[in-house]
Design a protein around this nucleic acid. Structure first.
Lengths: 120, 120
DNA sequence: AAAACCTTGACAAGATCGCGGTAAGGTTGG
DNA sequence: CCAACCTTACCGCGATCTTGTCAAGGTTTT
């Protein structure tokens, strides 16, 4: 057994998670540990530290694991984070080559057409 | 009644949401509309457009409203976004003034002490 | 004044989350 | 070889999320 690694339940004790939750955290891709030849999870000092700080983070900011999972998606999926960013950024999103006033008029007419169609 | 604004159920028709969900979206702080003197929600072209793009975003990326709500928190709460950023960034998080090697040793010893205490 | 809206608030069905437990089976150390 | 670990795969339960619907009351339109 490695000198510098804890098994899952030892890791649970020092970090304040349960072993059940350690596997859960891993299943969301937040912290993956290395494995022994037999497939046992082995937690080194870095993982332990990250587990502790993760715990603090969640507690201090009222954040859940699934929200951290989404944060992970945001930094892994480039196009997702761009789309989200763009949505928050744009009060009115429009093609760059259309002047704002024209675009607004176009949108108004479009929604009027759509509304007329929907109500007919 | 304003020329250029739709009531909640008209807005629902053109955007593909239900009026119930429009109120729900508002309750998460994602899209707030202005109100008529009597308190009726009035949706202008900008809100309608953002509602449509929000819908697309959610559908195309398999994202839920609560996750967009979290994204909103991330861009409103400075310290939260810094904490999340820092957690993902740091393989090992440590004070800036402590050299990496020493810190690592310190952490090891600390977790050994904690473990010993926990198991005694 | 009646019909057709709107408001907030509540209840409810179904899905997902957070977490524990259990079962069946492989590994490790004394 | 046996006790005490570990693995994955489930079942379940309380809490929360999503969404609809309904109730009680105000507004707008005709």
């Amino acid at each position: 057994m490695d000198v510098d690694a804890l098994t899952i339940q030892e890791a649970a004790q020092t970090t304040g998670w349960s072993s059940r939750m350690l596997r859960y955290v891993e299943s969301m891709g937040l912290i993956e540990s290395r494995r022994s030849p037999a497939g046992y999870r082995l937690y080194g000092p870095e993982e332990l530290q990250r587990l502790r700080t993760l715990r603090e983070l969640l507690a201090q900011h009222e954040v859940g694991l699934s929200e951290m999972g989404f944060a992970l998606r945001l930094r892994r999926e480039e196009d997702l984070s761009r789309a989200v960013e763009a949505w928050f950024e744009a009060e009115v999103s429009r093609p760059d080559d259309v002047p704002a006033a024209d675009w607004l008029r176009f949108e108004q007419e479009k929604h009027e057409r759509l509304l007329a169609a929907a109500l007919s």
